[in-house]
Design a protein around this nucleic acid. Sequence first.
DNA 1: CCTAGATCGTTATTAACTATAATTATCATC
DNA 2: GATGATAATTATAGTTAATAACGATCTAGG
Lengths: 169, 169
Amino acid sequence: MPQISGKVAKRAAGRPATKANAAQEPRPVSDKTLRKALGYHMKRAFNVIQTDLSETLKPLGLRMLTYTALVLIVDNPGLSQSQLADAMDIERPNLVVIVDELEQNELILRERVPSDRRTYALNATLAGRQLYERAVAAVLSHEARLLARFDAGQLEATKTVLQSIRAEG
Amino acid sequence: MPQISGKVAKRAAGRPATKANAAQEPRPVSDKTLRKALGYHMKRAFNVIQTDLSETLKPLGLRMLTYTALVLIVDNPGLSQSQLADAMDIERPNLVVIVDELEQNELILRERVPSDRRTYALNATLAGRQLYERAVAAVLSHEARLLARFDAGQLEATKTVLQSIRAEG
DNA sequence: CCTAGATCGTTATTAACTATAATTATCATC
DNA sequence: GATGATAATTATAGTTAATAACGATCTAGG
């Protein structure tokens, strides 16, 4: 899942520029057509953010999906796996292993609810809530550093666009 | 790869609201903590755009990766697989099957270059260039429809932020 | 009551994308 | 000419996503 970035720079730096290859100097690959689409920029930017996020979470023993699930469980105590899967936009079968992992790490509990014995009420343990605090702080501070150079107006416009794209579906 | 979206709406719509469940009406799941991070909005927005893109490309027999590769090959005739992999930010081994697929569909050619017989010069066929035209037009018009409601300033700010994120790595 | 249909969590399976190590052929350099 | 680097490839494994199907349970209509 972590994606390597910045290879173009590595390539460009590592050229000895001898007489032999001076002629066919590897001209940088043009992405003039791709860059007309916002989705292209979004994929590249998302790769960067996702890699950064993964490295932030790794020392805490979390991945992006387990982080997302843990945060939603802490913020919404007692929710069901179906609700959680809906909130995460993933299929119910794929959530099972995520909840399994959180449960095995004793970060959450699957509790039976008497009124509907088909469902589990998901609740975080104390350790889960403590990890939540550390993980959320780490994620936000990491991202703040990554976005430090932008002004609030730019970020607000970006957030607005991204949110509205999501809303339309 | 296409991700289902809009499930929350489906769920909310399908409730009969009888006496029994009126009490524990499924309150919408709160993402108040997650939404503090721009990466969260980016993932959701990217899912929407990616799903839209995949559906746009499917009738043309392309996926996101084969589309990206085809566009870069048409725009950069004769480039090598290493250059292409670098431009796409994927590992060289993973590019092989993509180039295989484009070649089997007779959209591109792997041509030996005499000056360096280790590399292939990738070039699009006539069919490849024709499909390129149709695919690029389809992608841009689809995205234009998806982004129609935003003004140019918002989109420009978004593009600037996304590009700079990518540049920093 | 009680049967039919729906929902919840689950298993199994498949496909797509990503990442790493190792191999072969070729090139560059000393 | 030997040594090391590069290009493409093979093999492999890990992660994520999508679908079908099942048992248990709930809901609704007769």
